[in-house]
Design a protein around this nucleic acid. Sequence first.
DNA 1: GCTAATTGGGAAAGCGCATTCCCACTGCTT
DNA 2: AAGCAGTGGGAATGCGCTTTCCCAATTAGC
Lengths: 361, 361
Amino acid sequence: MAASTLTEVARLAGVSPATASRVLNGSARKPGKDIADRVRQAAESLGYVPNAQAQGLAKSSSGLIGLIVHDIADPYFAAIARGVQEAAREQRKMVLLATTGGGPAEEREAVAAFAARRADSIVIAGSRSCREEDHDGNTALAAELDRYCRNGGQVAVVGHPVVGATAPEGYHVLRVPNRELADRLATELAGSWDGDFVIVGGPEGLLTSDDRVNGFQEGLARAGRRPAEVLRSAFNRSGGYEAGLELAARIKAGRSAEGAADPKLCIFAVNDVMAIGAAAALRSEGLRIPRDAAIAGFDDIETLRDFRPALSTVRLPLEDIGRLATRATGRGPAAGDAAEDAAPAGIAGEVTLRRSTETAA
Amino acid sequence: MAASTLTEVARLAGVSPATASRVLNGSARKPGKDIADRVRQAAESLGYVPNAQAQGLAKSSSGLIGLIVHDIADPYFAAIARGVQEAAREQRKMVLLATTGGGPAEEREAVAAFAARRADSIVIAGSRSCREEDHDGNTALAAELDRYCRNGGQVAVVGHPVVGATAPEGYHVLRVPNRELADRLATELAGSWDGDFVIVGGPEGLLTSDDRVNGFQEGLARAGRRPAEVLRSAFNRSGGYEAGLELAARIKAGRSAEGAADPKLCIFAVNDVMAIGAAAALRSEGLRIPRDAAIAGFDDIETLRDFRPALSTVRLPLEDIGRLATRATGRGPAAGDAAEDAAPAGIAGEVTLRRSTETAA
DNA sequence: GCTAATTGGGAAAGCGCATTCCCACTGCTT
DNA sequence: AAGCAGTGGGAATGCGCTTTCCCAATTAGC
């Protein structure tokens, strides 16, 4: 698309393009008032719209922040995106959105596209995977990020470093204390729950899931409880649903074999949408929460607010995560250090026990 | 940020930049194989990343689609965004995201920012408002869009035209049959519900809300039912919650005054998140759905899947809406016409009655 | 072998803008 | 009156790329 140019404004105002630029963009050199008025009037009458591409080319700064999520309609990513948007607005920058399926190969493509657009910074929000099948993708992604950072770009990764990444200048990791919080959740649940625990985890090798699984096991161990069995499933609602169907069958089988005295199962799903899926599966099998089994999740996504029964979970400040990640990339090394130093204090979650894990007293 | 340039690649390969561009980008003119190999190798060894800003400047096409939503974390907008993302990917374009609070003045700013970036097209997803306080904002937004389209940009607005817009070349409206569908919902509810209806609407003057209110009233009229009272509230969950509190008080007052024989209230909230808010309010007041009152919403947002009781609603294909809007702007007038001709057939919703409006037989 | 047509590479120009440096003018001081 | 310093406007340059047109070389046809 085309529009009026600065050169046309300058010609109409009878000045040079340099002067017109000074008037409209500000400069150490201040054009005289008469000239400035003429320029402004010319811009107004021509309906001048600056060309940000040309500005970016001339200034070597695009004013763009690239954001990579796995699925923008997932409440977890949507909340992070909202935080990124807010922080971007503070910096007067715009957000370029890339939705990938979750694999590092697709993320590499997104990073390359952002690099082509000379995005000033990139925020990567999805979980890291160290599965064998993602090895090549991780290597390619790490190389692409290395190049991007060496060329002056800033990157913030939420949760874990990209597997194989070399942490060049401009590369920030916003640590999320998944392990510690899952440990704490287990501790609190073990304090009130007599029955067995089972964990519904994502695919092994998905680092966020692994952290949460391992943290929960550690909490159980410290509470003198035996390790929970881990069911592996897709890291989404339908993964939770499938695991939930299996658990429902077990609960029913266990009940018919041993009667009502059997201690109930407490299910920890490593994210809320998985917990929601598992709950839906139990319900579809005629089971009630927490009467027949308890369920806890992780994240405290916004839509959980209207979920019944109220789900016990670990609350993560998702918007803050998006905001802090963006700010970490916003002003160069000083800001990067600030966000990383702040992470232990800045990204704090909390265990929130609700009705889904209530024990009948 | 900086990176290797095409000029450097050309120099290393010993050819002109024009030839290097031909090799890397394709052209009618085909460079010889030896030269092409040399260029590709030079690009590889230099880690050449094209500069999309420079490309956009030279080609007068940015490859950007601007998307304006009110809140990316609202499931309605997140679903539309997902559709836009998919269609953008088909067109090999990237999505620039602007989240506004909902007012046309903010939307104008977003449009201006997209215009500065020479976005090839813009999709505006939020509801239109013809309230008096938005008059100036609407005028400014319409003018900005007019200029954008006159400069060659493409716009797709979901639902209604921007108030005051002149429908220039390149301006598309993706009509959503809110009124007809709300009418149909009322008709179906009136067929089974004996009690009174009440509508929880957004602010008067918000066109999507008004359409749904009016359509529902028309359905009631045609079914021989008296008009529903309309409670006006904010067009979000908390607006629904507030209206729900008021209705809960009424239900309780009506029950104590007239006993159990009073026909129950059926609440139609003009979007799902408002319905969810109203339901939460009723529940907080000890009321049960559908035992004490029925509730229906509109949109069938994805997260409704796990809401209990299952909410009656009108299902809109939100992702399709995002996809079609994006495609409407994708290939010039012909595609635009196709989407607008297709709208009556393409954007079809359906009434979905679920447990929240079930009557005890 | 000669001529005409085709093909491919390079030089030049320009997309729209920001910045730097040169020059001219003005005001102040000696 | 002359010289110096400060200020503001313009010309020139360049950011990285694409496309067009000119020219030279090669190929094909007679």
